[in-house]
Every structure is written in structure tokens, then in C-alpha cells.
């Protein structure tokens, strides 16, 4: 708190003096001081954040470890055993190739879902006719648990990777479409009016207004899509031909290798967190106009 007051106090002591030069020099010095103080404060806040996170990890995994050591191995396992089992699955079983397979189907399904979601969502957001024609199906499918469609998809396409990719894409498409649709709709009505006033043609409207305006929502949708897509991967692999991480999970838990099953689950969690983190970076890069220093030391 005391440090927070410091730059302000210095500022109050240097109103623009009678000599312009003096004021300029002290302003420059003052500016640097304020900047430094702000940076220090931001660094402190970051460190604090990381420290709390670290403590939280230690507490949770510590509790897991202790509880795991005092329970039956069929029901639960300490984190150390889980990690060891995970290593063994990678080194001596097929977890590596299973992970590769799952990631491959995920990438295909996710890409298809995101692409359809962007196109459909933007069309529905930009054109009334597209909304009138398509929105009811989109919202109906959005509200339907996609698991319900899995048996039908299998019936139509089969049990192979293609069917799995279609299922994953279905999981991603609808939330993506709905998010992008609402995003395009939320682009300021005044800005749409400005575009008309500036006489932008249809192409310029898309390039300069609709597409950049939708970028934050596309990324939000894509981030939600990661979680949905991972759900899709596991469901597809359990419900069609047993394969990938779903296979690993099923095999280990049905043979009561609880520690190994937990290792697979942990791996899926890490995947989700990691992919979301990557998209967080993309978001940071893709919308420079939203991360602006507003003078409070925090970058948004």
C-alpha cells in the first residue's frame, strides 16, 4: 500500500514549473519512476499468483498422496504410484501410440468443428436469411447431448476413425457456432452504421468489420471447443471401436489397474489444460487491441 502512494506523491510535488525545460526533465524522470514502480508492482503480483498456485498444487497433491497411501489399491492410489504407472504405460505398453491416435482424431474432428462453426456462426450472425434458415437446427443440436447421436453415427458410418472424427466434430461444432453467432451479433450497432456511412462494400465490411470483430469470439468458442472435443474423443473411443486413450482407460479400469487408469485420466486432464493454455496465448497474440495498459499495471 505504501509503495502504491509513492509515485503519486512525487507527481503532486512537481506541477509544471515556470520554466518549461525543468518541467519537461522532471516529467521524463517522473514518467520513468512511475513506469518502474508499476512494473515492480506487476512483478510482485505475478510472483504472488505463482506462489499461491504452487502452494495449492502441493496441498492438493499432498492430500492425494497421503489419502492414497491409506486406501485399498483397487479403489485409489497415491499420486506417486499413479505417475509411476503412467511412466510404465508409456515405456512398456502402448500409451504413447494410443495418445498419438487420440490426438490425431481430435485434431481432425476439432479442425472440422471449428471451421464449420466459424463459417456457420458468421453467416448466421451477419445475414438474417442465414439465421432464419439455420439457427433453429443449430440451437436444437446445441441443446441435444451429442452422446445421443453416437449410436446413429455408428450405424451410418461405422466404427472406424472416420466415425470417431465425425463424432468429435459434432461435439465441437455447435458450441462453436453459437459462440461465433452471438459474437458477430454483438458487434456494435453503431459500428455497423459507421461502416455504412463510410460506404464500405460487402467485401470491405467482412475484412474490416465483421471478421476482426468476431476474432475474440472465435477464440472463445475454440477454447470451449477444446473441452467439448476431448469429451468427444473419449466418448467416441469408448462407444465405437475401442481405441486410443479410451482403450487405455477401459482396459486398465476393467482389469482393476486403478493406478494406471488414474494415470490415463490425469493425462487427459493435462491435455485439456495444455491445449487451453495454447489457445490463451493465441488469444493474447490475436487481439492486440484488447491487451492495453490502462495505467493500473495490469495487462488485459
Amino acid at each position: 500500500m505504501a509503495q502504491r502512494v509513492e509515485p503519486k506523491a512525487v507527481g503532486a510535488a512537481t506541477p509544471a514549473g515556470p520554466q518549461g525545460d525543468v518541467a519537461v526533465i522532471s516529467d521524463t524522470v517522473l514518467g520513468a519512476q512511475i513506469r518502474d514502480a508499476r512494473r515492480r508492482r506487476a512483478r510482485r503480483a505475478r510472483r504472488r499468483f505463482l506462489a499461491i498456485r504452487l502452494i495449492s498444487l502441493v496441498v492438493v497433491f499432498g492430500a492425494w498422496q497421503i489419502y492414497g497411501m491409506h486406501t485399498i489399491a483397487i479403489l485409489f492410489a497415491p499420486i506417486s504410484t499413479v505417475l509411476h504407472q503412467g511412466y510404465l504405460l508409456f515405456a512398456h505398453d502402448q500409451l504413447g501410440s494410443q495418445l498419438g491416435y487420440s490426438m490425431w482424431t481430435f485434431a481432425c474432428g476439432y479442425a472440422i468443428g471449428v471451421a464449420i462453426g466459424i463459417v456457420l456462426g458468421m453467416l448466421m450472425g451477419a445475414y438474417r436469411w442465414a439465421e432464419a434458415a439455420a439457427s433453429m437446427y443449430v440451437f436444437a443440436l446445441y441443446a441435444t447431448p451429442m452422446v445421443a447421436l453416437v449410436p446413429i453415427i455408428s450405424l451410418w458410418i461405422g466404427f472406424d476413425a472416420t466415425a470417431q472424427i465425425v463424432i468429435i466434430a459434432l461435439f465441437v461444432t455447435w458450441p462453436m457456432t453459437v459462440t461465433v453467432f452471438h459474437g458477430v451479433r454483438q458487434i456494435d450497432a453503431e459500428l455497423m452504421e459507421v461502416s455504412r456511412s463510410l460506404r464500405l462494400n460487402r467485401r470491405q465490411m467482412w475484412v474490416h468489420v465483421l471478421l476482426p470483430g468476431a476474432v475474440p469470439f472465435v477464440i472463445t468458442g475454440a477454447t470451449q471447443g477444446v473441452a467439448m472435443g476431448l469429451v468427444g474423443v473419449i466418448i467416441a473411443e469408448l462407444q465405437t471401436q475401442l481405441s486410443g486413450l479410451g482403450d487405455a482407460l477401459q482396459t486398465q479400469s476393467q482389469t482393476y489397474h486403478t493406478a494406471a487408469a488414474l494415470a490415463v485420466i490425469l493425462l487427459i486432464m493435462v491435455l485439456g489444460v495444455g491445449l487451453r493454455a495454447i489457445l490463451g496465448l493465441v488469444h493474447h497474440r490475436a487481439v492486440p487491441w484488447l491487451r492495453i495498459d490502462r495505467g493500473d499495471g495490469a495487462q488485459r
Partner: peptide, 22 residues
């Protein structure tokens, strides 16, 4: 415009240049 009507994703320069490019 009353509420400025600037495109938040464009820099000041690109906001001003947009109608010219259009």
C-alpha cells in the same frame, strides 16, 4: 458520430485511412 464510431481493432492511423482505402 456521438460515440466516436472508431473501430477498436484498428489503430488510429488505420481508422482514419479506412474510408480513403474504401
Amino acid at each position: 458520430f456521438q460515440h466516436y464510431g472508431l473501430f477498436p481493432w484498428k489503430t488510429v492511423f488505420h481508422n482514419v485511412a479506412l474510408p480513403l482505402r474504401a
